[in-house]
Design a protein around this nucleic acid. Sequence first.
DNA 1: AGGCTTTGACCATGT
DNA 2: GACATGGTCAAAGCC
Length: 257
Amino acid sequence: MVSPRKDAVDEVAPDKSPHGQSTDRGSHRSEPNNVSEIRAPQSDQDGSTPLNVRKKDSMESNTSQSLRSDPQGSASSIKSEKASETTTDIILASPSGPEGSTPTIMREKVSEDGYNWRKYGQKLVRANEFIRSYYKCTYPNCRVKKQLDCTHSGHITDTIYFGQHDHPKAPNLPLAVGFVVSIVEERPDDSSSSVAKDKSSDTHEQTPHKTEPMTDSQLSIVASDDVKPLSQSNKIRDEINDDSPGSKRRCVSPLAI
DNA sequence: AGGCTTTGACCATGT
DNA sequence: GACATGGTCAAAGCC
């Protein structure tokens, strides 16, 4: 839209460090950095560079399935055309039954985790094939962040959590609990998931959880032993498709979905 | 009135 | 060193 910010920045701070933003940015980099390590293993399976994965991913995703190889090699999967992690989210919105009127794009704020998230950014990634939305936990002291990748069709293909909440969940989200539990219990065979689970349970640090793509019940949690941040990505493929495509909510607010 | 979403731009990192 | 991609911030607008 307008580019006020640019002007403002130019005028206010040429170097953009009035409030310490630059500092912030620098700090933030650290977080994602950890994640990189986490994600690396996934692609590592390929034996290539972690970062490359993302780029290549775009191509793979094209085929409807990306191969996010898992570190354990167990769940690799994939984002099918109908992948969508926010199953819970959808459920949340659906029950209310506002269907029909406005698309379920309303601000739910509560995600499958049961926490309140605020969107702070959105970006086209992977050759613009995917829309990545950035969310931050709205809790005062909570710095947990999460990224949602979705296709233009509105299908969530990937959800990544950075950090862990050390505060109670939103009161209005019963599903969240079940969801999380499912993740942990559903994958007992995953050595990594065990670790991740363990850490996530014990450590309240900023652990990015990455939900990996798998069936609705399958969720793999990847975590790096060294880094606190765990990445948990859950992708539920197939499914959500049940919703009428027409009523599909825009990818814009996955959590609101 | 407050909070959240949206969008553009900037910066950082990686290739 | 340049290009491309990714992540975050900030302003405006909307609910």
